[in-house]
């Protein structure tokens, strides 16, 4: 990774207040992504992937949620310290996000065109005909057929795949330097998934943009990501180049994840999502002492249950596990 990262998240913690006390949803998440690079984030449901993405843009619902510690450095600027207007200037402009649920992520009462134009007006000051022309261009860029006609349609008139394309077009409106895609294909059928991945890859190449791709699909990671971060229980338990992590997984959880994938050489679309590792993710409400994975881990030893292992880094491959001795940070 050359030079200063585009985005670097350090020790990010997010808490939720609830009837049962305080839930630690993120527990010191650290990761980084450089310009032109794709960082994949994988992990089971509930591991904190979406929360990490939301926290970067400070969109954690507050209350009941709260970012309690950490730094989010975007080109060296700590977004957690930024003013609200500054943050609004970054959202949708410098850093864009697309979500898991294309069916419900667009406002049902406004036309597709109006929703794209809104972003263009907000950040670029484009209005009227200029905004319309640019929106249609953006719709064409994401391969929406009959873009002129789609411009005036409402979200309910489009299929899920088309809606996700609209979301991508909207996210690309201001040519952001970072795109966070939170499971952009989970709700779509397999052929459409492959198309959306192709589209994202192509846009990223063309724009030299940083991409954080959150997914359950190890195959998509293998194909798309330069580096991958594996999350478990609100932590990044392993991180490194995709080759390193997939070929030589260090953390027992990562090994489990990879073992669940039938065959990474299959085409995108023919692969299945992760099958389960026995056991469940610990509840965020339970007070954690040791490694969050200890209860499900075959290799667990005594210290795993009492204290959280620190990160061990060698050759840019980071892992947090008591079974991997080495110089600890």
């Amino acid at each position: 990774m050359a030079g200063e990262p585009l985005l670097s998240v350090e020790g990010l913690c997010v808490e939720f207040k609830g009837a049962r006390g305080i839930a630690r949803v993120l527990n010191g998440v650290s990761l980084s992504v450089a310009a032109g690079e794709t960082l994949g984030i994988v992990g089971e449901s509930g591991s904190g992937k979406s929360m990490t993405a939301l926290a970067v843009l400070r969109l954690v619902p507050d209350p009941p949620g709260r970012i309690s510690a950490g730094r989010v450095l975007f080109r060296g600027e700590d977004l957690l310290q930024a003013s609200t207007p500054r943050m609004r200037d970054i959202r949708g402009n410098k850093i864009s996000m697309i979500f898991q649920e294309p069916m419900t992520s667009l406002n049902p009462v406004f036309t597709v065109g109006a929703q794209i134009c809104e972003t263009l007006t907000l950040h670029l000051g484009l209005r009227g005909e200029a905004a319309r022309r640019r929106s249609i261009e953006l719709l064409k860029d994401v391969r929406i057929p009959a873009a002129e006609q789609r411009f005036d349609e409402y979200p309910h008139q489009l299929s899920g795949g088309m809606r996700q394309r609209v979301m991508i077009a909207m996210a690309m409106a201001c040519e952001p330097s970072l795109l966070i895609a939170d499971e952009p294909t989970t709700a779509l059928d397999v052929t459409v998934q492959a198309q959306i991945f192709d589209l994202l890859r192509e846009i990223q190449k063309a724009r030299g943009m940083g991409l954080i791709l959150i997914t359950h699909d190890m195959g998509a990671i293998a194909e798309m990501a330069d580096r991958v971060a594996v999350m478990y229980g609100g932590r990044v338990v392993e991180e490194g180049t995709t080759r390193d992590v997939l070929d030589h997984p260090q953390h027992p959880y990562t090994k489990g994840l990879i073992a669940c994938v039938p065959d990474l050489d299959q085409e995108v679309g023919e692969r299945h999502a992760l099958t389960e590792i026995p056991g469940v993710v610990p509840s965020v409400w339970d007070l954690q002492q040791g490694c969050p994975f200890a209860d499900r881990c075959d290799e667990a030893i005594a210290p795993c249950r009492t204290s959280m292992p620190a990160d061990v880094v060698s050759n840019g491959h980071r892992v947090a596990c008591w079974q991997r001795p080495g110089e600890r940070a």
Binding site: I90, N107, E118, T119
Partner: peptide, 26 residues
């Protein structure tokens, strides 16, 4: 609590616009 409200915020819209345009209209 709807997803499209999150989208509106992620666009960088002011809370006032999110509230009175995107939420109230629905």
């Amino acid at each position: 609590g709807a997803d499209y409200i999150r989208t509106a915020r992620a666009k960088g819209l002011a809370e006032r616009t999110v509230f009175f345009k995107h939420a109230l209209r629905n």
